[in-house]
Design a protein around this nucleic acid. Structure first.
Lengths: 317, 317
DNA sequence: CTGAAAGCGCTTACAG
DNA sequence: CTGAAAGCGCTTACAG
């Protein structure tokens, strides 16, 4: 039994007779033999490894995406190398490290990245496709897959307007991120078409505490919004908690709409109406874009979907 | 410049003169050269890769653990291969797959595993240490790292008793898991010492919906608990929401205590008093146990810590 | 369909 | 401190 025969037995479609393949497979099972994937990678010059680069996982939207990516990758016979980073500088280091494992692509979850320079767009990837998930960086040559946040922002405005609200506030996330910017742009754009503009757009971070604080501050300054668009669900949940503490009734006095549709939004205590990101489609599309030898640059957008719950008054539009 | 020299330049502590090392490093930078980690793994027979095997990530406790593991691994110069599984059968397949990458250890997050056979304990690991995180399987030869759930269960009973409650219910998770069993055992054990026993211990799954339903069912059946221990925070949050819907005031009429201390427990809407798992310590200890050539079997327990919030009446014990 | 041989990019005794 | 050589466990032309 030659080395080549064994190799062929484990290679689907290799030129080997069914009989010898069977013999190899049988004795392999008996001996507990398994091909060494590392050696294979070296010989074939294809590692089959894709790096998943995450920062913190505070926003529950990302773990969700992460595990679905891992599954999708496995379904395609690829492996996911999980790497972490702290800031842009570390992304570069992380990417270099990943490159030494001959990864075929890197998917970065920008949980801590902004569009401020030094930006991820400047990262040297040495020919490895880099995909930025859920964010884009203007004018950089990365591939980005995201929700159509601007359209989502318009939709949020439309829903709030449809509920009868006219004093609308946007409580933003990190103002340096494209997600924040696009959602805000869509929101104000739609309002402008109706001759309106937001009464306030305080912005800082995609965090619960910030949603709480911004809502308190807004009211302390005399603001009386009757509709609030929170930049994402985590922020919106903070808004809802603050509103409850302020004694403002939702949705009767104030409507609240978020973005993402994380699990927490469906809790009875919140019932947050929100714009759902089409995660499965975004992941499929990411992998597709990476597998085709298509240009590994550009922005691929996916429409969000309204999930109607109880934090906005009125009937579904 | 020989191949050996280059190799030595990149090997800390190798016998090479500072001068030639510098020369190698300089020209490497200029040429953008980086050693190939795959080839290195093959040559050294050490991959430096640890597999992280997860099921679903519905319980937010696991993503947290996952990203901290990834970071801790990186800090030690190891890499994390992220793998998923669906059930026990798949764990075996996943492990085999991982083994082909010459992993040094596998850490499994039992998000979908029970102690029902076919159990993870029967898994063939081919000499690779397998660590079960946050769960243990009686009589199997795996390494387990978990919170001291039984002591935690006693603590929960103590806290509830201390608040004056006497009609205590336990709303469990998946009854086939050690986490559920140990917490219940500790809880009932402590009550027994005070001549009490739980008025009910409905159990099914570590899920929000189940916490809600169990609470409704309990009350529909005429139960009037004045203290509830939810098997984990997700369940407890369901309990709190159901209690609110039932018009039962927390903590005045009913105290609620959970287990884990996930982020959601700190929301203003919940203020869940809970027993925090010492995640960082558990992770350190896991990696320690795996790195020493200690026995890769047995159960390593870590004490939980009471986090006092507003869902249980009275002063901190 | 099969086997011998070269090669993937490293590391590491070994001899100097 | 340095280099030539063998070897890690595979794959894949190449010749048969």
């Amino acid at each position: 039994m030659s080395q080549s025969a064994v190799s062929r037995a484990f290679t689907p479609g290799a030129s080997i007779s069914p009989a010898t393949r069977q013999r190899v497979l049988d004795t392999a099972r008996r001996l507990g033999y398994q091909p060494n994937a590392i050696a294979r990678s070296l010989a074939t010059q294809r590692s089959g490894i894709v790096a998943l680069i995450v920062g913190d996982l505070h926003n529950p939207f990302y773990p969700q995406a992460l595990s679905q990516f891992a599954q999708a990758l496995e379904a395609r016979g690829k492996r996911a190398l999980l790497l972490t980073h702290d800031s842009k500088r570390d992304v570069q280091e992380t990417l270099d490290m990943a490159a030494s494992y001959q990864i075929e692509a890197a998917i970065v979850f920008p949980t801590r990245l902004t569009s401020r320079p030094p930006s991820l767009g400047d990262v040297r990837s040495g020919g490895i496709p880099v995909l930025l998930f859920n964010r884009h960086l203007p004018g950089q040559n990365l591939l980005s897959v995201a929700c159509d946040n601007q359209a989502g922002g318009r939709l949020a405005a439309q829903v709030l307007l449809g509920s009868g609200a006219r004093n609308l506030a946007f409580i933003g996330g990190d103002p340096e991120t494209s997600t924040h910017q696009d959602r805000l742009r869509g929101f104000t754009g739609h309002l402008a078409e109706h001759g309106l503009s937001p009464i306030a757009t305080p912005s800082r971070a995609f965090q619960y505490d910030w949603g709480v604080q911004a809502t308190f501050d807004l009211h302390a300054a005399g603001g009386r919004p009757d509709g609030i668009f929170g930049a994402n669900d985590i922020v919106s949940i903070g808004v809802l908690d603050a509103l409850r503490a302020l004694g403002r009734r939702v949705p009767e006095e104030v409507g609240v709409i978020g973005f993402d549709d994380i699990q927490e939004s469906a809790r009875m205590a919140y019932g947050l109406t929100t714009i759902q990101q089409p995660l499965a489609a975004m992941i499929e599309d990411s992998l597709l874009a990476l597998s085709n030898d298509q240009p590994v640059t550009g922005l691929r957008l996916h429409p969000g979907k309204l999930v109607w719950r109880s934090s906005v008054r009125g009937a579904r539009p």
